[in-house]
C-alpha cells in the first residue's frame, strides 16, 4: 500500500468510527430528547407540536397522588438501600475473607442468582413469602423485598474491592497494635468505602426504578412513583407523564454530572 493510500484508509477508519458513534448515541438519546421536548407541548397530544407550555408541570405539582408516590419511592429507596448496603457489605466481606466455609457454594449462588433473575419471578416468590408469613403488605414488605435484591448488587460491587485489598495493609495495622475490630473500622472499611458508596447508589437506583417487584409486594397506600407512572401510561400517553419523566431525567442527569465532577475534583486533589 502506498503512503497516501494508507493515510486515506486511516481517515476512512476514523470517520467510520465517528459515524458509528453518532448513530449509536442518536439511537440512545433521540427517544429521551423527544420525550423531554413534548413534555412542554401545549396540546394533550405527545406527537404533534402545538406550542410551548409548562402547564403539565403545573398540573404535576397539584397531583397529590403523584406527589405521595414520589415520597413513598424516596422512603423505600433510602431504607432498602441502607439495609442492602449493610447486608451486602457484610456478605462481601465474608465471601472475600473466608475462602471456605459451610454452604459457601449455596451462599454464592444465592448472591448471584437475583442479579439475573426475572423480576416477575422474584416478585412472585417474595409475595408468596409475605402471604405465608401473614405479613400485611405495604412499605415494610417492599423495603425487605428491595433490600434482598439490592444486597446482591452491593455484594457484587463491594466484594472485588475486599478481594483486591493488599493484605499487608491489614497486617501492618495489626502489627502496629490494632485489634481485628479496630483494623476493620480504621483500615478495611475506609478503603472499601468508595465501592460501598457505589453499591448504595446502585441499590437506591434499582429501588427507585423498580415496578415489578414493588407491584407484587405493595399494599394499599404504598404506591411508588414507577407504579403511579405505569398506571397512568396504561390509561394513555399524556404530556403529564412526559413532564414527570423529564423531571426524573433531569434529576438523574444532575446527579450523574455532580458525581462526575466530584470524582474529578477528588481525583485531581489526590495527585
Amino acid at each position: 500500500m502506498s503512503a497516501p493510500a494508507r493515510l486515506s484508509s486511516r481517515f476512512a477508519h476514523r470517520y467510520a468510527h465517528r459515524l458509528v458513534l453518532l448513530a449509536g448515541f442518536g439511537f440512545l438519546y433521540v427517544p429521551i430528547i423527544l420525550l423531554i421536548i413534548f413534555s412542554f407541548n401545549e396540546s394533550r397530544l405527545v406527537t404533534v407540536w402545538a406550542g410551548f407550555s409548562t402547564r403539565w408541570y403545573g398540573a404535576l405539582f397539584k397531583n397529590e397522588q403523584m406527589l405521595s408516590s414520589v415520597w413513598n419511592s424516596l422512603v423505600l429507596a433510602l431504607a432498602s438501600a441502607s439495609l442492602a448496603t449493610i447486608l451486602g457489605t457484610l456478605a462481601a466481606y465474608g465471601l472475600a475473607r473466608t475462602p471456605r466455609f459451610k454452604g459457601r457454594m449455596i451462599f454464592a449462588a444465592m448472591i448471584y442468582a437475583p442479579l439475573v433473575m426475572p423480576e416477575v419471578i422474584s416478585g412472585l416468590a417474595l409475595l408468596l413469602l409475605f402471604v405465608a408469613l401473614d405479613l400485611d403488605r405495604g412499605l415494610p414488605t417492599m423495603i425487605m423485598a428491595h433490600a434482598s435484591i439490592g444486597m446482591c448488587f452491593v455484594t457484587v460491587v463491594v466484594q472485588p474491592r475486599f478481594m483486591a485489598m493488599d493484605r499487608s495493609l491489614i497486617e501492618a495495622a495489626m502489627d502496629l497494635g490494632a485489634t481485628p475490630l479496630s483494623t476493620f473500622f480504621s483500615i478495611t472499611l475506609p478503603l472499601a468505602f468508595p465501592a460501598i458508596q457505589s453499591g448504595f447508589l446502585l441499590a437506591m437506583m434499582l429501588s427507585l426504578d423498580d415496578l415489578v417487584i414493588a407491584s407484587f409486594t405493595s399494599g394499599p397506600g404504598s404506591t411508588t412513583l414507577p407504579m403511579r407512572i405505569y398506571s397512568q401510561v396504561r390509561l394513555g400517553v399524556t404530556p403529564e407523564v412526559n413532564a414527570i419523566s423529564a423531571l426524573l431525567i433531569g434529576v438523574i442527569a444532575f446527579a450523574l454530572l455532580a458525581g462526575a465532577l466530584l470524582r474529578r475534583r477528588t481525583h485531581a486533589h489526590a495527585h
Binding site: 493488599d166 499487608s168 495493609l169 497486617e171 501492618a172 495495622a173 502489627d175 483500615i187 478503603l191
Partner: peptide
C-alpha cells in the same frame, strides 16, 4: 515487635 513491610503497606487513605 514492629515491622517494615516490603511493600511499605502505607495506609493510602
Amino acid at each position: 515487635v514492629n515491622m517494615m513491610f516490603q511493600s511499605y503497606a502505607l495506609f493510602p487513605h
